[in-house]
Amino acid sequence: MSRRRSKILVVSALAVLLLAWEGAVVLTGAQASWPFPSGIIRSGFAITADGTLLVALAGSLQRVITGFLVGALVGIPTGIAMGLLPWVNLAMRPVTESLRSIAPIAWIPLAILWLGVQGNAALFVVAYAAVFPFILNAAQAARAVDRNHLRAARALGAGPGLILRAVVVPSTLPTIFTAARIALAIAWSSIIAAELALGVKIESGGRSVAGLGQLMVATLYVKRDVNALVFGMLVIGLVSFLIDAVLRRLRDTLLPWARR
């Protein structure tokens, strides 16, 4: 089949599917609890036009990026130290292994207790979620530094400081970029989970919307707009795809030597 014909096939299949979906919901009169394409588009326009979506998105993104940076700043040096120094590894291993097995969102109640519902609790959860991919990958990459690269550097006169800066760190960077992609994906899903949990609490206290998760809770429980809720879900997926694309692009420009 030619490329053009297969494209036509895909598009028409999609169109048929959407029409069937729309028809099924509208004809059965289930619009109150079932989303449908035209409703999603209409509600999507509405929450985009009045600015609520953008404000919520900015709030979520800001916390994800801050939490992600905290995770990187803590996780990368910790991981590299664990990879290079057996005693650090021995000391940290039990801590990281046990903490890692506790799901980030399981911390939400405690985080709320300590940090309140305004946003820092979500930030904590995100940083917590992001730190482990960095630790694990940085440690593994630091252990895997090519022995001959280390030997070459020593034979050229490099001391420990230069070896760390100019051999160990660059060797680990490609793996750390992979870690960053994993960390951002986990961070993004954790923020939504955290905000959903916080959102319920906020709504009961009658406070304003702060992030995408809260917005979804508000649209569902306050406005009863199931279409806006689904639009929010689509935005979440799109953002996570865009973040990953940006990271991949960043990797190719920052580490041109690692491109395969």
Binding site: H149, A155, L156
Partner: peptide
């Protein structure tokens, strides 16, 4: 030590450094 230079069978060039960056590594160190 830098008075004993080594050339490895697999070259062990630093992939993250350019030709210039690799060659100047010894003097840099």
């Amino acid at each position: 030590g830098p008075e004993r230079g080594v050339m490895f069978q697999d070259y062990a060039l630093f992939p993250w450094r350019t030709v210039l960056g690799n060659i100047e590594f010894g003097p840099l160190a």
